[in-house]
Design a protein around this nucleic acid. Structure first.
Length: 315
DNA sequence: ATGGTTTTTACTGCGTC
DNA sequence: GACGCGGTAAAAACCAT
């Protein structure tokens, strides 16, 4: 049975609360997914498998009426879990021995609630995905999207005999792109402790075999906002940078260029125009590109501007 | 594998504080 | 002199074929 062409049209199809696009239904588990931003929602509940892991503790937690079930856990969040934060109940971090013990407990605990080896593997990877999302400070919807992607790749046997770490990093990165959250491949790789190139390989694989359809990287505007946030720059600069970038959007200067570099250039130019005048050095550092790249993009933006001044409005 | 494109590295020169 | 900035050449990385 195919996963994606089985969309239920009509009554159940809502629109995405984030970007407003029509949601696509996935009959397997009853969630609906936004094709553009990756937002995942849930259809009405009465679907057998969801009850599979019910036991006393779930009753106590009153899952059914409480928080929504989550795709990021192999049993859709319907059982107990041991936290991955590696801190005790007072918030102190655990010593290595205790960490190992906790790790074992978690493993056994998850064995206790899973039966088949596939499910065991799945829960392992999903835990890894959550972990990685946490260290990257990613919002929940990204973690869930990543989980969904991994579920799909598991079903399609793409994940078979692949490095767990690689698959984890790749799905998380892909989820970021689907959700429009600007994390670079570099950042994801660093957080996962992998080489960028390796993550890229897995990413291409997942993109080709599972996603089937190109997911564009976050827009320059997303990078601008992120840059402003992480570097704690005056929001006024952000505003100017965004309007500037919209003026030149999809004119030839952006094609094939790293969006981070362009964003850095817009932010730099804006900071100069506004009078804040941040050094290229700093902006380049936060954007994780070099000053040279910032300069090159600046020059191109300015050239583009001059051309349009001289030859009237854009082509 | 390869060739074209982009980014980085490393270095130099200029003006200003 | 230190700093920010602009430029360049060559190496490295990236991407489509």
């Amino acid at each position: 049975m195919s996963l994606w062409n089985a969309s239920r049209d009509g009554t159940l199809m809502g629109s995405c609360p984030i970007c407003g696009n029509k949601l696509i239904g996935d009959t397997e588990k009853g969630e609906e997914v936004c094709p553009t931003c990756g937002y995942v929602t849930y259809a009405p509940a009465d679907q057998g498998p969801e009850w599979k892991a019910m036991d006393l503790e779930e009753k106590n937690k009153r899952v059914r009426v409480g928080a929504p079930t989550t795709l990021a856990l192999h049993d859709l969040g319907l059982s107990t879990e041991i936290s991955r934060t590696m801190r005790d109940s007072h918030g102190r971090s655990l010593d290595p021995a205790m960490r190992a013990a906790t790790e074992r407990m978690r493993k056994w605990q998850s064995r206790a609630r899973t039966s088949t080896s596939e499910e065991r593997g799945l829960s392992n990877v999903l835990a890894k995905i959550n972990e990685l999302c946490q260290t990257l400070n990613l919002p929940d919807n990204v973690a869930q999207t990543a989980a969904q992607i991994y579920r799909n790749s598991a079903k399609m046997k793409v994940a078979k005999s692949k490095s767990i770490l690689g698959m984890t990093a790749a799905t998380v990165y892909l989820a970021c792109r689907k959700c429009g959250v600007s994390r670079t491949l570099k950042e994801v790789a660093r957080a996962a402790g992998m080489e960028k190139g390796n993550v890229a390989r897995y990413f291409r694989l997942v993109l080709k075999e599972v996603e089937k359809e190109y997911v564009p990287p976050p827009s320059v505007e997303k990078y601008i906002s992120k840059l402003i946030n992480t570097a704690k720059i005056d929001p006024k600069v952000e505003h100017l940078a965004l309007t500037l970038s919209r003026k030149t959007v999809d004119s030839r200067i952006s094609s094939g260029k790293a969006p981070a570099g362009l964003a850095a250039a817009y932010v730099y130019l804006s900071s100069v125009l506004i009078g804040a005048h941040l050094p290229q050095r700093e902006i380049a550092e936060f954007a994780e590109v070099t000053e040279v790249t910032v300069r090159n993009r600046c020059r191109e933006i300015l050239d583009d501007y001059v051309i349009r001044q001289e030859f009237g409005q854009p082509s």
